[in-house]
Design a protein around this nucleic acid. Structure first.
Lengths: 157, 157
DNA sequence: TGAAAAATCACCCTAAAGTATGAGGGTTAG
DNA sequence: CTAACCCTCATACTTTAGGGTGATTTTTCA
């Protein structure tokens, strides 16, 4: 298969987990030593493993699900008086990608490029690139115009 | 307290986790037995604990965080009921002047400071001063935030 | 009428936004 | 397989926005 790099990228967290596991070996070995030296420290050892790996599992799960939660946000919000209906036709017509829409939403929320970058776990330059594409597609020159236009076209609430 | 049932309901997952833990004891005891009988089954025992508790951690984390993920988005207490009604109370409370409101409107229309200056026949510096006052009064740092806040407070359409 | 608020403008400086260009890897449909 | 996106990031540069300070002229109103 030629998709080995793909696999690597997709399982970044899993690989990190592996590395962390390796790092844990020392701790475990040390605990094993204690087990030999101190009698009946067996429970301590088992308990340690349980606690450590439970925490590890929680951490892993959080890492894996965090990106997914961001995607959920934009689907599930409804205004009380008038429900916002995303104009998907316009979105398709303007060829605006999911990521670009995400940036647009944060932009309209008043966030700076730097803040958006931090929130989306990408670099400032990446946000600037998204902005440039966005402005091009919306045929505007500034973020304030982009917000105005996007709201008018019901691309954002 | 009378909200014990509420507590039970809210922590269903935690209780389940506890029950599951109890159930695990038998498995662990059994493994411990094996550990005594079979020599060098120690690694198997430790590995089992690691795997089980990692899975447990993942499951726990997913159970606990899944309900929390969605509600982050909009609060929305003032929608747009067709016709815009200027919130004069807020305007008075925030002590925003006529000219400042004018600047704010043009700002939200996507105009740059220079364009606003030309439109209002004043200098760029004047607009900047108005902006600074506006940001101070609205307690924001950027024009995009100012627009967002002003719209939310129905100061501008 | 006199103080307060509003509106105007300038200068200097920093921060943020935006433009242009190139580039590498990922995903996907044909 | 490959062309077409998409997402990512970088570097370099220009423009706009924003902060701080101080000042003058109107307007407003008690």
């Amino acid at each position: 298969m030629a998709n080995t790099p793909n696999f690597l990228a997709k399982n970044k967290s899993v690989i990190l987990y592996g590395v962390f596991l390796a790092a844990l070996l020392f701790l475990l070995k040390w605990l094993e030593l204690r087990f030999i030296i101190i009698d009946h420290a067996f429970e301590i050892y088992a308990g340690s493993i349980a606690v450590i790996f439970t925490a590890l599992g929680i951490w892993l799960a959080l890492k894996l699900t965090r990106p997914k939660t961001i995607l959920i946000e934009k689907e599930v919000f409804t205004g009380k008086p008038e429900t916002f209906i995303l104009n998907e036709k316009e979105l398709t017509k303007l060829n605006i990608s999911k990521r670009e829409l995400e940036v647009l939403q944060l932009m309209s929320a008043g966030l700076s490029n730097q803040e958006i970058a931090l929130k989306l776990f990408v670099s400032l330059n990446t946000i600037k690139t998204h902005n440039a594409r966005l402005f091009e597609k919306l045929e505007v020159k500034r973020r304030t115009q982009a917000i105005e236009t996007a709201k008018r076209l019901s691309i954002i609430p």
